[in-house]
C-alpha cells in the first residue's frame, strides 16, 4: 500500500472511531425517546404530573403515573446535598491552598482523590448499616430525605473540593501579591480577591456537581426508604427518579416500562441543561 493511501485509510478509520464515540450521546437520546413513545402516547405528558399517584401498570388505562413526587425527591436531595457540600468543599480547597502546610496539603489532596474514587454503592452501604440506624434513634424510620442528603453530600464533596482546588490554583499569583502588598488580611484576600477571580471556575464546578447529584442512583436507593411521596420533613422517607428506575426496571412491562424511560429522559434533559449552563458560564471566564 502506498503511504498516501495508507494515510487516507487511517483517517477514515479514525473518523469512524470518533464518529461512533460522538454518536453515543445521540444514540442514547434516540433510544430513550423511542422507548418513551408508547407511554407518551398512551399516558400523555400531562398525566405524569396530574395523576393521583404512582401505581404504574402494563396498560396505561389501568395505572396511575405521577412522577412529580419522585422528581421532587430528586430535586430536594440534590439541593440539600449541594447546599451542604459546596461550603465544605470550598473550605477543603481553601485549606489546601492557604491554611495547610505543604506536606499536609498534599496529603489532604491525596485523601480527597482517594475519596472521589470510592464507589457510590459503598457509600450507600455505609449509610444503610451505620447512618440510617443512627437517624432511626433520633426519629424513625431513619431511612429518609436527610439520610439521602448526608450521603449524597459526602459523595459529591471530594469532586467539589477537587474542582474548587483547580479553580483556586488558576488565580494569578500577582493578585495574591497585590493583595499582600496592600496589607489585606487573609480573610479579606480570600473573600475580596480570590473568590471573585475564581468565580466562574467555582460556579462551573458547583453546576457539574449538581448534575452528578441529580443523576446519583445507588446511594439514594439504599438510604432514602423509597416510599413514593413528597417528604414533608427531613425525616420522611422518599424515592428519587433514579431509584425508581433501578427498583422497577427489572420487572416493568409495557407502558410501565416505557414510563421509566420517560423518567430517564427527564433526567437526561436536566443534565444537558446543567451542562449547557456550565458551558455558558465557563465562556464568560475572565482568564484561561
Amino acid at each position: 500500500m502506498s503511504p498516501s493511501s495508507k494515510d487516507r485509510l487511517l483517517v477514515w478509520v479514525l473518523r469512524a472511531c470518533a464518529g461512533l464515540s460522538g454518536a453515543i450521546v445521540l444514540l442514547i437520546a434516540v433510544f430513550l425517546v423511542l422507548e418513551s413513545l408508547p407511554a407518551l402516547r398512551n399516558v400523555g405528558f400531562a398525566r405524569f404530573f396530574s395523576d393521583p399517584s404512582w401505581h404504574p401498570a402494563r396498560y396505561a388505562a389501568d395505572g396511575a403515573y405521577n412522577l412529580a413526587p419522585m422528581l421532587a425527591g430528586t430535586l430536594l436531595a440534590m439541593a440539600g446535598a449541594v447546599a451542604l457540600a459546596t461550603p465544605l468543599g470550598f473550605c477543603a480547597a481553601l485549606f489546601c491552598h492557604f491554611y495547610a502546610p505543604p506536606g499536609l496539603a498534599r496529603a489532604c489532596r491525596r485523601l480527597i482523590e482517594l475519596l472521589a474514587g470510592i464507589p457510590s454503592v459503598v457509600y450507600g452501604f455505609w449509610g444503610l448499616v451505620t447512618l440510617v440506624p443512627l437517624l432511626n434513634k433520633v426519629q424513625p424510620p431513619g431511612a429518609s430525605l436527610l439520610a439521602g442528603i448526608l450521603i449524597l453530600a459526602l459523595m459529591i464533596l471530594p469532586t467539589i473540593a477537587l474542582m474548587a482546588d483547580g479553580a483556586l490554583a488558576n488565580v494569578p499569583a500577582e493578585y495574591l501579591r497585590g493583595a499582600a502588598a496592600l496589607g489585606l488580611s487573609r480573610s479579606a484576600t480570600i473573600v475580596g480577591v480570590v473568590f471573585p477571580a475564581a468565580k466562574s471556575g467555582l460556579f462551573t464546578g458547583v453546576i457539574l456537581e449538581t448534575g452528578r447529584a441529580a443523576g446519583e442512583t445507588m446511594a439514594l436507593l439504599m438510604v432514602c426508604g423509597n416510599v413514593v411521596q413528597v417528604p414533608k420533613s427531613l425525616f420522611d422517607p422518599m424515592r428519587t427518579l433514579t431509584a425508581n428506575i433501578a427498583l422497577e426496571m427489572g420487572y416493568a412491562l409495557g407502558d410501565h416500562r416505557s414510563a421509566l424511560f420517560v423518567s430517564g429522559l427527564v433526567l437526561l434533559a436536566l443534565i444537558v441543561a446543567l451542562a449547557a449552563a456550565a458551558e455558558w458560564l465557563s465562556k464568560g471566564r475572565v482568564y484561561e
Binding site: A18, G19, S21, G22, A23, I24, V25, L26, L27, I28, F31, L32, L34, E35, L208, G211, R212, A214, G215, E216, T217, T242, I245, A246, M249, L260, F261, G264, L267, L268, I271, V272, L274, A275, E279
Partner: peptide, 25 residues
C-alpha cells in the same frame, strides 16, 4: 467540535441512564 461537545455531554450522563440505554440497545 461536534464530537468533542458530545463527549463532554456523555461524561455527565447519569449511570442509570446508561443502564436504560444499555438494556434497550
Amino acid at each position: 467540535r461536534a464530537v468533542r461537545r458530545s463527549l463532554d455531554v456523555l461524561a455527565g450522563v447519569p449511570s442509570i441512564v446508561f443502564g436504560l440505554f444499555g438494556t434497550a440497545l
